[in-house]
Computed example of a mutant assay.
Amino acid sequence: MDTQKQARALMMRHNRIVRNRQESMLGRAASEIGVDVDTAHYSSRIQGKTSSASRTSYDRSNAAMS
Protein backbone atom coordinates (compact mmCIF):
# COMPACT_ATOMS: atom_id res chain seq x y z
CA MET A 1 0.00 0.00 0.00
CA ASP A 2 1.50 3.32 -0.98
CA THR A 3 1.72 6.36 1.28
CA GLN A 4 -1.31 8.15 -0.15
CA LYS A 5 -3.55 5.13 0.34
CA GLN A 6 -2.28 4.69 3.90
CA ALA A 7 -2.94 8.35 4.69
CA ARG A 8 -6.42 8.13 3.19
CA ALA A 9 -7.24 4.97 5.14
CA LEU A 10 -5.96 6.55 8.37
CA MET A 11 -8.06 9.69 7.83
CA MET A 12 -11.17 7.67 6.99
CA ARG A 13 -10.69 5.57 10.13
CA HIS A 14 -10.21 8.70 12.22
CA ASN A 15 -13.40 10.28 10.83
CA ARG A 16 -15.32 7.07 11.52
CA ILE A 17 -14.08 7.01 15.13
CA VAL A 18 -15.10 10.64 15.67
CA ARG A 19 -18.53 9.98 14.15
CA ASN A 20 -19.06 6.88 16.30
CA ARG A 21 -18.02 8.76 19.44
CA GLN A 22 -20.42 11.58 18.58
CA GLU A 23 -23.31 9.19 17.94
CA SER A 24 -22.71 7.23 21.15
CA MET A 25 -22.59 10.40 23.25
CA LEU A 26 -25.82 11.60 21.62
CA GLY A 27 -27.46 8.27 22.39
CA ARG A 28 -26.35 8.40 26.02
CA ALA A 29 -27.58 11.95 26.47
CA ALA A 30 -30.92 11.09 24.85
CA SER A 31 -31.39 8.04 27.06
CA GLU A 32 -30.65 10.08 30.19
CA ILE A 33 -33.47 12.49 29.44
CA GLY A 34 -35.78 9.78 28.12
CA VAL A 35 -35.87 10.71 24.43
CA ASP A 36 -35.75 8.07 21.72
CA VAL A 37 -33.27 9.26 19.07
CA ASP A 38 -32.13 7.37 15.99
CA THR A 39 -28.49 8.44 15.76
CA ALA A 40 -28.05 7.02 12.26
CA HIS A 41 -30.30 9.73 10.81
CA TYR A 42 -29.02 12.56 13.00
CA SER A 43 -25.73 13.51 11.39
CA SER A 44 -25.57 16.24 8.78
CA ARG A 45 -22.29 15.52 7.05
CA ILE A 46 -21.38 17.06 3.74
CA GLN A 47 -19.65 14.59 1.42
CA GLY A 48 -19.01 12.24 4.33
CA LYS A 49 -17.03 14.75 6.38
CA THR A 50 -17.81 15.59 9.98
CA SER A 51 -18.20 19.26 10.80
CA SER A 52 -15.19 21.06 12.23
CA ALA A 53 -17.08 21.88 15.43
CA SER A 54 -17.91 18.24 16.14
CA ARG A 55 -14.43 17.16 15.10
CA THR A 56 -12.85 19.38 17.78
CA SER A 57 -15.47 18.43 20.39
CA TYR A 58 -15.40 14.66 19.90
CA ASP A 59 -11.80 14.17 18.80
CA ARG A 60 -8.99 12.79 20.91
CA SER A 61 -7.71 15.17 23.55
CA ASN A 62 -4.13 16.36 23.79
CA ALA A 63 -3.87 15.22 27.40
CA ALA A 64 -1.71 12.22 28.08
CA MET A 65 -2.10 9.64 30.81
CA SER A 66 0.77 9.49 33.22
Rank of each mutant, 00 (worst) to 15 (best):
Met1Phe: 10
Met1Gln: 04
Met1Ser: 11
Met1Lys: 07
Thr3Ile: 07
Gln4Trp: 04
Gln6Trp: 11
Gln6Tyr: 13
Ala7Trp: 08
Ala7Leu: 15
Ala7Gly: 02
Ala7Arg: 13
Ala7Glu: 13
Arg8Lys: 13
Arg8Gly: 00
Arg8Asn: 01
Ala9Thr: 09
Leu10Cys: 01
Leu10Trp: 03
Met11Arg: 15
Met11Leu: 15
Met12Asn: 11
Arg13Ile: 05
His14Trp: 13
His14Asp: 02
Asn15Thr: 12
Arg16Lys: 12
Val18Met: 01
Val18Ile: 15
Val18Glu: 00
Arg19Cys: 02
Arg19Trp: 01
Asn20Gly: 03
Asn20Asp: 14
Asn20Thr: 12
Arg21Val: 03
Arg21Phe: 02
Ser24Met: 13
Ser24Lys: 15
Met25Asn: 12
Met25Ala: 10
Leu26Cys: 03
Leu26Trp: 02
Gly27Lys: 05
Arg28His: 07
Ala30Asn: 00
Ala30Met: 07
Ser31Arg: 13
Ser31Pro: 00
Glu32His: 06
Glu32Tyr: 07
Glu32Thr: 03
Val35Tyr: 03
Asp36Cys: 02
Asp36Lys: 10
Thr39Phe: 02
Ala40Trp: 01
Tyr42Glu: 13
Ser43Leu: 06
Ser43Cys: 02
Arg45Trp: 02
Ile46Lys: 11
Ile46Phe: 09
Lys49Asp: 10
Ala53Ser: 11
Ser54Phe: 09
Arg55Ala: 11
Thr56Ile: 10
Ser57Val: 06
Ser57Phe: 11
Tyr58His: 15
Asp59Arg: 10
Asp59Thr: 09
Arg60Gln: 05
Arg60Asp: 09
Arg60Glu: 12
Arg60Thr: 05
Asn62Leu: 11
Asn62Val: 06
Ala63Cys: 10
Ala64Gly: 12
Ala64Phe: 12
